[in-house]
């Protein structure tokens, strides 16, 4: 059976304080491709192996952080079904007309219990991944920088953590894949709508609507080390890594964009099926859960959000 319902993270719209610096960071350093701009000054980007027109929208702003994250659903019927699910959960929805973001179909938009805005959409203009669909070569020759393959997930800090997780499981039909618990209290929840280790994650927090990081897939540990070289070469503010997570097993490095939004690039994490068991890490072992090698929590990683 193919995937149904919510397919994947479709895009994230990030607020940036200097659009030129942001475009330089995401395109020249991380290897994303600019596909459009609009009359609000927003810039549309995609990673090379994505077929849809954009997965990142950079929004000129006087602050940093996440405007919204959007998920792509399989069909228009799914869109209306999830709209109804969300309303039945008790969360207000509104519809955003097609074309409000260039090339994106009608969206169902809502603010989840943790204070983050999410949108769902079924249609987005496809521009392809730069490779032919008949006898395709393995990669395009003109990708630069870290060569990010796709926008993969976001990790968010929000209040009302338990309700956030229940909302994603009950209304949006995600499955809990991994968690960190302190006794009966869940501190972190990793949720998947696919066969990925996670498509979104939440950390218990007291302030609503914060972005911890937007994450991008790379092809290998060697590519993560190469990203680390680029981070130093280009004077990008490093947060943590390169290292491995216990959670999801991903090989990873964290750094910040020029507006202070944290990015991750990672490779070689785990996968799941609908019958995979829930993995649990205990709070007394959270150092190892988060950074498997150093087994030490890093203040900036734990405490800095945008």
């Amino acid at each position: 059976m193919a995937m149904t319902g919510i397919l994947r993270p479709g895009h994230v719209q990030l607020r940036v304080m200097d659009i030129d610096e942001a475009v330089n960071h995401y395109c020249n350093y991380m290897g994303l491709i600019e596909t459009d701009r609009d009359d609000q000054g927003r810039v549309y980007l995609k990673c090379w192996d994505e077929h849809d027109k954009f997965s990142i929208v950079l929004e000129p702003s006087d602050s940093s952080g996440m405007n919204h994250m959007a998920f792509k659903v399989r069909t228009e019927q799914d869109l209306w079904r999830f709209e109804s699910n969300v309303k039945n959960f008790g969360v207000e929805t509104k519809r955003i007309p097609a074309g409000e973001l260039n090339g994106c179909g009608e969206r169902v938009s809502f603010v989840a219990p943790g204070g983050h805005r999410f949108d769902l959409f079924a249609e987005k203009e496809m521009v392809g991944n730069g490779l032919p669909t008949t006898n395709p070569p393995p990669w395009p020759e003109d990708v630069v920088g870290m060569k990010a393959i796709r926008f993969d997930h976001c990790l968010l800090y929000g209040n009302d953590h338990d309700e956030s997780v229940r909302f994603f499981v009950e209304a949006l039909e995600f499955e809990l894949t991994e968690q960190v618990v302190d006794g009966d209290v869940q501190i972190a929840a990793f949720l998947s709508c696919s066969t990925k280790a996670h498509d979104i994650a939440f950390i218990r927090h007291d302030e609503p609507g914060r972005l911890h990081h937007a994450s991008f897939l790379l092809g290998s540990w060697e590519q993560v080390l190469r990203a680390a070289d680029i981070i130093s070469m280009k004077d990008i503010p490093l947060d943590v890594g390169p290292t491995r997570h216990g959670l999801t097993r991903g090989m990873t490095i964290y750094y910040f964009d020029p507006s202070g939004n944290r990015n991750e690039v990672f490779a070689e994490d785990s996968y799941r099926y609908p019958d995979s068991p829930l993995l649990t890490w205990t709070a007394d072992n959270s150092g190892q859960a988060i950074f498997y090698h150093s087994r030490t929590l890093v203040d900036s990683f734990m405490g800095v959000t945008s």
């Binding site: 940093s64 964009d257 202070g260 939004n261 900036s300």
Partner: peptide, 8 residues
């Protein structure tokens, strides 16, 4: 020391 980009 946080994001070093004026954001956090």
């Amino acid at each position: 020391v946080g994001c070093r980009g004026g954001g956090c």
